[in-house]
Write a protein that binds this DNA or RNA. Structure first.
Length: 420
DNA sequence: CCTCCACAGGAAGCGCAGGAGT
DNA sequence: ACTCCTGCGCTTCCTGTGGAGG
Protein backbone atom coordinates (compact mmCIF):
# COMPACT_ATOMS: atom_id res chain seq x y z
CA UNK A 1 0.00 0.00 0.00
CA UNK A 2 1.33 3.37 -0.99
CA UNK A 3 1.35 6.24 1.43
CA UNK A 4 1.18 9.46 -0.52
CA UNK A 5 3.30 12.07 1.11
CA UNK A 6 3.00 15.71 0.35
CA UNK A 7 6.29 17.47 -0.11
CA UNK A 8 5.36 20.03 2.47
CA UNK A 9 4.13 17.54 4.99
CA UNK A 10 7.06 17.71 7.33
CA UNK A 11 6.86 21.49 7.36
CA UNK A 12 3.22 21.55 8.23
CA UNK A 13 3.56 19.56 11.42
CA UNK A 14 2.18 21.30 14.45
CA UNK A 15 4.82 21.94 17.05
CA UNK A 16 4.29 20.30 20.40
CA UNK A 17 6.89 22.33 22.23
CA UNK A 18 7.42 25.56 20.33
CA UNK A 19 4.75 28.19 20.43
CA UNK A 20 6.47 30.77 18.26
CA UNK A 21 9.86 29.73 17.07
CA UNK A 22 10.46 33.19 15.60
CA UNK A 23 10.89 34.59 19.10
CA UNK A 24 14.07 32.57 19.41
CA UNK A 25 15.61 33.71 16.17
CA UNK A 26 18.51 36.14 16.22
CA UNK A 27 16.52 38.65 14.17
CA UNK A 28 13.68 38.87 16.61
CA UNK A 29 13.50 42.09 18.58
CA UNK A 30 11.98 41.45 21.99
CA UNK A 31 9.67 44.07 23.46
CA UNK A 32 12.10 44.60 26.31
CA UNK A 33 15.87 44.49 26.48
CA UNK A 34 16.69 43.45 30.03
CA UNK A 35 19.96 44.66 31.61
CA UNK A 36 20.50 47.27 28.94
CA UNK A 37 18.36 50.00 30.45
CA UNK A 38 21.33 52.20 31.29
CA UNK A 39 22.85 51.85 27.86
CA UNK A 40 19.55 52.60 26.18
CA UNK A 41 19.11 55.70 28.29
CA UNK A 42 22.52 56.93 27.33
CA UNK A 43 22.06 56.37 23.62
CA UNK A 44 18.68 58.08 23.82
CA UNK A 45 20.34 61.07 25.46
CA UNK A 46 22.98 61.26 22.75
CA UNK A 47 20.45 61.02 19.94
CA UNK A 48 17.90 63.35 21.46
CA UNK A 49 19.20 66.50 19.71
CA UNK A 50 17.62 65.11 16.55
CA UNK A 51 14.24 66.05 17.96
CA UNK A 52 15.35 69.67 18.01
CA UNK A 53 16.72 69.34 14.51
CA UNK A 54 20.26 69.13 15.78
CA UNK A 55 22.86 66.54 14.94
CA UNK A 56 23.04 63.60 17.32
CA UNK A 57 26.43 62.83 18.79
CA UNK A 58 28.40 60.23 16.91
CA UNK A 59 28.58 57.07 18.97
CA UNK A 60 30.92 54.15 19.00
CA UNK A 61 29.68 51.00 20.67
CA UNK A 62 32.05 48.23 21.51
CA UNK A 63 31.36 44.84 23.04
CA UNK A 64 31.68 41.14 22.35
CA UNK A 65 29.21 39.30 20.16
CA UNK A 66 25.73 38.78 21.54
CA UNK A 67 25.78 41.46 24.21
CA UNK A 68 23.01 43.52 22.69
CA UNK A 69 24.92 46.17 20.75
CA UNK A 70 22.95 45.85 17.55
CA UNK A 71 19.70 45.36 19.42
CA UNK A 72 20.14 48.56 21.41
CA UNK A 73 21.21 50.54 18.37
CA UNK A 74 18.28 49.39 16.28
CA UNK A 75 15.80 49.67 19.10
CA UNK A 76 16.72 53.22 20.05
CA UNK A 77 17.02 54.46 16.50
CA UNK A 78 13.67 53.07 15.47
CA UNK A 79 12.08 54.73 18.48
CA UNK A 80 13.74 57.95 17.46
CA UNK A 81 12.46 57.53 13.95
CA UNK A 82 8.97 56.98 15.23
CA UNK A 83 9.07 60.09 17.36
CA UNK A 84 10.45 62.17 14.51
CA UNK A 85 7.72 60.98 12.20
CA UNK A 86 5.16 61.95 14.78
CA UNK A 87 6.66 65.40 15.16
CA UNK A 88 7.17 65.70 11.42
CA UNK A 89 10.90 66.08 11.69
CA UNK A 90 12.62 64.64 8.63
CA UNK A 91 14.96 61.86 9.68
CA UNK A 92 16.38 59.05 7.68
CA UNK A 93 17.71 55.92 9.25
CA UNK A 94 20.02 53.49 7.53
CA UNK A 95 21.33 50.28 8.97
CA UNK A 96 24.35 48.97 7.13
CA UNK A 97 26.17 45.81 7.99
CA UNK A 98 29.73 46.34 6.91
CA UNK A 99 30.41 42.69 6.61
CA UNK A 100 28.52 43.01 3.34
CA UNK A 101 29.57 46.53 2.46
CA UNK A 102 33.27 46.59 3.04
CA UNK A 103 34.41 49.79 1.38
CA UNK A 104 33.58 53.45 1.49
CA UNK A 105 32.29 53.19 -2.01
CA UNK A 106 29.99 50.26 -1.31
CA UNK A 107 28.64 51.98 1.81
CA UNK A 108 27.90 55.16 -0.08
CA UNK A 109 26.10 53.30 -2.84
CA UNK A 110 24.06 51.38 -0.29
CA UNK A 111 23.18 54.52 1.61
CA UNK A 112 22.02 56.30 -1.53
CA UNK A 113 20.01 53.30 -2.60
CA UNK A 114 18.25 53.24 0.76
CA UNK A 115 17.56 56.94 0.47
CA UNK A 116 16.13 56.44 -2.98
CA UNK A 117 13.92 53.58 -1.85
CA UNK A 118 12.48 55.65 0.94
CA UNK A 119 11.98 58.77 -1.11
CA UNK A 120 11.65 57.91 -4.77
CA UNK A 121 9.41 60.85 -5.35
CA UNK A 122 11.92 63.43 -4.27
CA UNK A 123 14.73 61.83 -6.20
CA UNK A 124 12.69 61.87 -9.36
CA UNK A 125 11.40 65.38 -8.83
CA UNK A 126 14.86 66.77 -8.37
CA UNK A 127 16.24 64.45 -11.01
CA UNK A 128 18.82 63.07 -8.64
CA UNK A 129 20.17 59.92 -10.19
CA UNK A 130 20.57 56.66 -8.34
CA UNK A 131 24.00 55.33 -8.98
CA UNK A 132 25.19 51.80 -9.16
CA UNK A 133 28.79 50.80 -8.88
CA UNK A 134 30.84 52.39 -11.59
CA UNK A 135 29.77 55.93 -10.85
CA UNK A 136 32.54 58.31 -9.87
CA UNK A 137 32.78 58.66 -6.07
CA UNK A 138 32.54 62.42 -6.19
CA UNK A 139 29.20 62.06 -7.91
CA UNK A 140 27.93 59.78 -5.17
CA UNK A 141 29.10 62.25 -2.61
CA UNK A 142 27.48 65.17 -4.36
CA UNK A 143 24.19 63.35 -4.67
CA UNK A 144 24.26 62.69 -0.96
CA UNK A 145 24.98 66.30 -0.10
CA UNK A 146 22.35 67.50 -2.57
CA UNK A 147 19.76 65.31 -0.97
CA UNK A 148 20.62 66.26 2.59
CA UNK A 149 20.75 69.93 1.78
CA UNK A 150 17.76 70.02 -0.47
CA UNK A 151 15.57 68.10 1.86
CA UNK A 152 17.00 69.30 5.13
CA UNK A 153 16.92 65.78 6.36
CA UNK A 154 18.89 64.26 9.21
CA UNK A 155 20.60 61.03 8.29
CA UNK A 156 21.57 58.54 10.96
CA UNK A 157 23.78 55.75 9.70
CA UNK A 158 24.33 52.67 11.79
CA UNK A 159 27.53 50.98 10.72
CA UNK A 160 27.51 47.52 12.20
CA UNK A 161 30.77 45.57 12.30
CA UNK A 162 32.39 48.80 11.29
CA UNK A 163 35.88 47.33 11.59
CA UNK A 164 35.22 45.45 8.35
CA UNK A 165 35.42 48.64 6.31
CA UNK A 166 38.80 48.69 4.65
CA UNK A 167 39.07 52.41 4.09
CA UNK A 168 37.20 53.52 7.14
CA UNK A 169 39.26 56.68 7.56
CA UNK A 170 38.19 57.73 4.14
CA UNK A 171 34.54 56.91 4.74
CA UNK A 172 34.36 58.81 8.01
CA UNK A 173 36.11 61.75 6.45
CA UNK A 174 33.61 61.82 3.62
CA UNK A 175 30.62 61.62 5.91
CA UNK A 176 31.84 64.37 8.22
CA UNK A 177 32.80 66.49 5.29
CA UNK A 178 29.22 66.25 4.14
CA UNK A 179 28.31 67.81 7.46
CA UNK A 180 30.72 70.71 7.14
CA UNK A 181 29.62 71.38 3.64
CA UNK A 182 25.92 71.45 4.34
CA UNK A 183 26.49 73.69 7.30
CA UNK A 184 28.77 76.08 5.52
CA UNK A 185 26.65 76.54 2.46
CA UNK A 186 23.45 76.89 4.42
CA UNK A 187 21.55 79.88 3.22
CA UNK A 188 18.96 81.41 5.48
CA UNK A 189 16.17 79.63 3.68
CA UNK A 190 18.00 76.31 3.46
CA UNK A 191 16.89 73.55 5.70
CA UNK A 192 19.03 71.80 8.22
CA UNK A 193 20.64 68.49 7.42
CA UNK A 194 23.35 66.29 8.84
CA UNK A 195 24.90 62.87 8.88
CA UNK A 196 25.36 61.15 12.22
CA UNK A 197 27.24 57.90 12.62
CA UNK A 198 26.66 55.12 15.07
CA UNK A 199 29.47 52.60 14.79
CA UNK A 200 29.39 49.13 16.24
CA UNK A 201 32.31 46.77 16.61
CA UNK A 202 33.36 43.77 18.59
CA UNK A 203 36.99 44.45 18.02
CA UNK A 204 38.36 47.18 20.27
CA UNK A 205 41.84 47.02 18.85
CA UNK A 206 40.84 48.22 15.43
CA UNK A 207 40.42 51.65 16.95
CA UNK A 208 44.14 51.97 17.29
CA UNK A 209 44.55 51.59 13.56
CA UNK A 210 42.30 54.54 12.83
CA UNK A 211 43.87 57.85 12.12
CA UNK A 212 43.43 60.26 15.01
CA UNK A 213 41.07 62.54 13.15
CA UNK A 214 38.58 59.85 12.25
CA UNK A 215 38.94 58.37 15.71
CA UNK A 216 37.81 61.59 17.30
CA UNK A 217 35.00 61.78 14.77
CA UNK A 218 33.69 58.30 15.38
CA UNK A 219 34.36 58.17 19.08
CA UNK A 220 32.74 61.43 20.09
CA UNK A 221 31.05 59.21 22.59
CA UNK A 222 32.20 55.72 23.40
CA UNK A 223 30.29 52.94 25.03
CA UNK A 224 31.38 49.53 26.14
CA UNK A 225 28.83 46.78 26.56
CA UNK A 226 29.81 44.19 29.13
CA UNK A 227 29.06 40.50 28.56
CA UNK A 228 26.01 39.10 30.33
CA UNK A 229 26.61 36.91 33.35
CA UNK A 230 24.77 33.64 33.97
CA UNK A 231 22.10 35.25 36.10
CA UNK A 232 21.30 37.87 33.50
CA UNK A 233 21.26 35.30 30.74
CA UNK A 234 18.80 33.25 32.74
CA UNK A 235 16.40 36.15 32.92
CA UNK A 236 16.80 36.89 29.22
CA UNK A 237 16.14 33.27 28.37
CA UNK A 238 13.15 33.06 30.68
CA UNK A 239 11.58 35.98 28.85
CA UNK A 240 12.08 34.29 25.52
CA UNK A 241 10.86 30.96 26.78
CA UNK A 242 7.55 32.61 27.58
CA UNK A 243 7.32 33.97 24.05
CA UNK A 244 8.75 31.10 22.10
CA UNK A 245 7.60 27.94 23.84
CA UNK A 246 4.29 26.59 24.96
CA UNK A 247 3.67 26.71 28.71
CA UNK A 248 5.80 24.46 30.91
CA UNK A 249 7.65 22.90 28.03
CA UNK A 250 11.11 23.96 29.16
CA UNK A 251 12.46 22.73 32.46
CA UNK A 252 14.00 25.39 34.67
CA UNK A 253 17.15 23.36 35.02
CA UNK A 254 17.53 23.36 31.24
CA UNK A 255 17.35 27.13 31.16
CA UNK A 256 19.91 27.42 33.92
CA UNK A 257 22.26 25.08 32.14
CA UNK A 258 21.89 27.01 28.90
CA UNK A 259 22.69 30.23 30.70
CA UNK A 260 25.70 28.69 32.41
CA UNK A 261 27.10 27.35 29.16
CA UNK A 262 26.58 30.64 27.35
CA UNK A 263 28.13 32.60 30.21
CA UNK A 264 31.22 30.49 29.91
CA UNK A 265 31.27 31.12 26.17
CA UNK A 266 31.65 34.83 26.83
CA UNK A 267 28.21 35.97 27.92
CA UNK A 268 26.81 35.75 24.44
CA UNK A 269 23.02 35.99 24.46
CA UNK A 270 22.72 35.14 20.79
CA UNK A 271 24.58 31.94 21.44
CA UNK A 272 22.36 31.18 24.41
CA UNK A 273 19.25 31.57 22.32
CA UNK A 274 20.60 29.46 19.57
CA UNK A 275 21.42 26.77 22.07
CA UNK A 276 17.96 26.89 23.53
CA UNK A 277 16.35 26.73 20.14
CA UNK A 278 18.45 23.77 19.14
CA UNK A 279 17.59 22.04 22.41
CA UNK A 280 13.95 22.65 21.63
CA UNK A 281 14.37 21.15 18.18
CA UNK A 282 16.03 18.10 19.65
CA UNK A 283 13.24 17.67 22.19
CA UNK A 284 10.69 18.16 19.46
CA UNK A 285 12.34 15.56 17.26
CA UNK A 286 12.45 13.08 20.11
CA UNK A 287 8.82 13.71 20.83
CA UNK A 288 9.76 14.60 24.41
CA UNK A 289 7.20 16.30 26.53
CA UNK A 290 9.62 19.03 27.56
CA UNK A 291 13.13 20.37 27.02
CA UNK A 292 15.58 18.87 29.51
CA UNK A 293 19.18 19.39 30.51
CA UNK A 294 20.14 16.46 28.37
CA UNK A 295 18.73 18.18 25.30
CA UNK A 296 20.80 21.26 26.09
CA UNK A 297 23.94 19.17 26.37
CA UNK A 298 23.27 17.55 23.03
CA UNK A 299 22.50 20.92 21.50
CA UNK A 300 25.77 22.28 22.83
CA UNK A 301 27.81 19.88 20.74
CA UNK A 302 25.90 20.32 17.54
CA UNK A 303 25.64 24.11 17.79
CA UNK A 304 29.36 24.31 18.32
CA UNK A 305 29.92 22.42 15.08
CA UNK A 306 27.25 24.33 13.20
CA UNK A 307 28.89 27.62 14.05
CA UNK A 308 32.33 26.60 12.90
CA UNK A 309 31.00 25.12 9.72
CA UNK A 310 28.78 28.04 8.88
CA UNK A 311 31.45 30.65 9.27
CA UNK A 312 33.96 28.48 7.48
CA UNK A 313 31.58 28.04 4.60
CA UNK A 314 31.16 31.78 4.05
CA UNK A 315 34.90 32.28 3.61
CA UNK A 316 36.29 32.91 0.14
CA UNK A 317 37.60 29.73 -1.41
CA UNK A 318 41.24 30.71 -1.28
CA UNK A 319 41.02 31.45 2.42
CA UNK A 320 39.51 28.04 2.97
CA UNK A 321 42.41 26.52 1.07
CA UNK A 322 44.87 28.33 3.30
CA UNK A 323 43.14 27.02 6.40
CA UNK A 324 43.17 23.57 4.89
CA UNK A 325 46.91 23.82 4.30
CA UNK A 326 47.47 25.01 7.84
CA UNK A 327 45.28 22.23 9.19
CA UNK A 328 47.33 19.73 7.23
CA UNK A 329 50.56 21.06 8.64
CA UNK A 330 49.19 21.02 12.16
CA UNK A 331 47.67 17.56 11.86
CA UNK A 332 50.74 16.01 10.33
CA UNK A 333 52.67 17.70 13.06
CA UNK A 334 55.84 18.16 11.13
CA UNK A 335 58.31 17.27 13.82
CA UNK A 336 61.26 19.51 14.39
CA UNK A 337 64.72 18.23 15.34
CA UNK A 338 63.82 17.53 18.94
CA UNK A 339 60.84 15.51 17.76
CA UNK A 340 58.13 17.50 19.45
CA UNK A 341 54.95 18.33 17.59
CA UNK A 342 54.54 21.86 16.41
CA UNK A 343 51.37 23.81 16.03
CA UNK A 344 52.96 27.07 14.93
CA UNK A 345 54.29 27.60 11.46
CA UNK A 346 56.01 30.48 9.75
CA UNK A 347 54.07 32.28 7.08
CA UNK A 348 56.59 30.97 4.55
CA UNK A 349 55.90 27.37 5.50
CA UNK A 350 52.18 27.97 5.31
CA UNK A 351 52.59 29.49 1.89
CA UNK A 352 54.58 26.55 0.56
CA UNK A 353 51.95 24.12 1.78
CA UNK A 354 49.19 26.31 0.45
CA UNK A 355 50.74 26.25 -3.01
CA UNK A 356 50.71 22.46 -3.01
CA UNK A 357 47.15 22.19 -1.72
CA UNK A 358 45.90 24.78 -4.14
CA UNK A 359 47.25 22.90 -7.13
CA UNK A 360 46.29 19.44 -5.93
CA UNK A 361 42.99 19.81 -4.12
CA UNK A 362 41.41 22.73 -5.90
CA UNK A 363 42.76 22.72 -9.39
CA UNK A 364 43.78 26.33 -9.31
CA UNK A 365 46.72 28.63 -9.70
CA UNK A 366 47.87 29.74 -6.25
CA UNK A 367 47.84 33.42 -5.35
CA UNK A 368 50.99 35.36 -4.77
CA UNK A 369 52.61 35.41 -1.36
CA UNK A 370 51.84 39.06 -0.91
CA UNK A 371 48.16 38.37 -1.30
CA UNK A 372 48.23 35.33 0.93
CA UNK A 373 49.69 37.54 3.65
CA UNK A 374 46.66 39.75 3.20
CA UNK A 375 44.41 36.68 3.51
CA UNK A 376 46.20 35.63 6.66
CA UNK A 377 45.54 39.03 8.19
CA UNK A 378 41.87 38.65 7.41
CA UNK A 379 41.74 35.16 8.85
CA UNK A 380 43.32 36.49 12.01
CA UNK A 381 40.73 39.23 12.26
CA UNK A 382 38.00 36.65 11.94
CA UNK A 383 39.59 34.61 14.68
CA UNK A 384 40.36 31.45 12.72
CA UNK A 385 44.05 31.76 13.31
CA UNK A 386 46.34 33.66 15.61
CA UNK A 387 49.66 35.12 14.65
CA UNK A 388 52.62 36.51 16.51
CA UNK A 389 55.97 37.83 15.44
CA UNK A 390 58.81 35.38 15.69
CA UNK A 391 60.90 36.75 18.47
CA UNK A 392 64.28 35.29 19.29
CA UNK A 393 65.20 31.85 18.05
CA UNK A 394 64.13 32.34 14.50
CA UNK A 395 66.22 33.73 11.77
CA UNK A 396 64.71 36.71 10.11
CA UNK A 397 61.49 38.54 10.67
CA UNK A 398 58.38 36.43 10.17
CA UNK A 399 55.13 35.62 11.85
CA UNK A 400 54.16 32.35 13.43
CA UNK A 401 50.72 31.19 12.43
CA UNK A 402 48.57 28.98 14.59
CA UNK A 403 45.21 27.39 13.89
CA UNK A 404 42.48 28.34 16.32
CA UNK A 405 40.41 25.17 16.16
CA UNK A 406 40.90 21.45 15.99
CA UNK A 407 42.74 20.73 12.71
CA UNK A 408 40.88 17.49 12.06
CA UNK A 409 37.51 19.17 12.20
CA UNK A 410 38.63 22.14 10.14
CA UNK A 411 39.92 19.78 7.53
CA UNK A 412 36.74 17.77 7.47
CA UNK A 413 34.55 20.86 7.28
CA UNK A 414 36.55 22.52 4.54
CA UNK A 415 36.71 19.43 2.40
CA UNK A 416 32.96 19.19 2.73
CA UNK A 417 32.46 22.86 2.00
CA UNK A 418 34.72 22.85 -1.04
CA UNK A 419 33.02 19.68 -2.23
CA UNK A 420 36.21 17.90 -3.14
C1' DC B 1 80.14 46.13 13.94
C1' DC B 2 78.12 44.96 9.49
C1' DT B 3 75.52 41.90 6.60
C1' DC B 4 72.04 38.68 5.48
C1' DC B 5 67.78 36.27 6.15
C1' DA B 6 62.86 35.89 5.80
C1' DC B 7 59.74 37.90 5.91
C1' DA B 8 56.07 42.53 6.71
C1' DG B 9 53.48 45.64 4.51
C1' DG B 10 53.31 50.07 1.36
C1' DA B 11 52.94 51.68 -3.56
C1' DA B 12 52.06 51.19 -8.21
C1' DG B 13 49.88 49.09 -11.68
C1' DC B 14 47.17 45.62 -14.44
C1' DG B 15 42.98 43.40 -16.39
C1' DC B 16 38.34 43.25 -15.89
C1' DA B 17 33.35 44.43 -15.13
C1' DG B 18 30.25 47.80 -15.44
C1' DG B 19 28.18 52.65 -15.08
C1' DA B 20 28.52 57.62 -17.00
C1' DG B 21 28.79 60.71 -20.68
C1' DT B 22 28.65 61.53 -25.55
C1' DA C 1 28.13 52.23 -29.90
C1' DC C 2 31.91 54.41 -28.24
C1' DT C 3 35.24 56.13 -24.90
C1' DC C 4 36.27 57.39 -20.24
C1' DC C 5 36.20 56.27 -15.47
C1' DT C 6 36.06 53.69 -11.22
C1' DG C 7 36.39 49.78 -7.84
C1' DC C 8 38.02 45.22 -7.14
C1' DG C 9 41.08 41.42 -6.83
C1' DC C 10 45.37 40.59 -7.58
C1' DT C 11 50.59 40.79 -9.02
C1' DT C 12 55.02 43.03 -9.13
C1' DC C 13 58.26 45.70 -7.06
C1' DC C 14 60.02 47.73 -3.28
C1' DT C 15 61.60 49.49 1.30
C1' DG C 16 61.63 48.34 6.27
C1' DT C 17 62.77 45.49 10.32
C1' DG C 18 64.63 42.63 14.05
C1' DG C 19 67.38 38.87 15.15
C1' DA C 20 71.18 35.56 13.42
C1' DG C 21 75.61 34.81 11.71
C1' DG C 22 80.08 36.23 10.86
Amino acid sequence: MTTKKNLFEEHSIEYKIFENKEALSPHFTPPKLPYREEEIKRVVGLMAPALKRGKPTNIFIYGKTGVGKTMVARFVSSELHEMCTEKQIPLFLSYINNRMYTSKYAVLVKLLKDLYESDKQYFEEKKLAVHESGAPPTLLYETLVDYIEGKGVGVVVILDEIDAVRDLDNLLYTLTRANDETRKSRKPEAKYGYVAVLGISNNLFFKKKLDPRSRSTLCEEEMIFAPYNAKQLTRILMDRVKLGFKDNKVEDSAVHLTAAVAAKEGGDARYALRLLRKAGEIAEANDSKSVSEKDVEDAHKSVEEDIVFESLGTLPEQQQVILLALADLTANGTANLTGEKRNQFTSGEVYEEYKKVSKQVVKEQPRSMRWVREYLNELEMLGFISMQFSGKGSRGQTRLVELGEDPKKIKEFILRSLKV
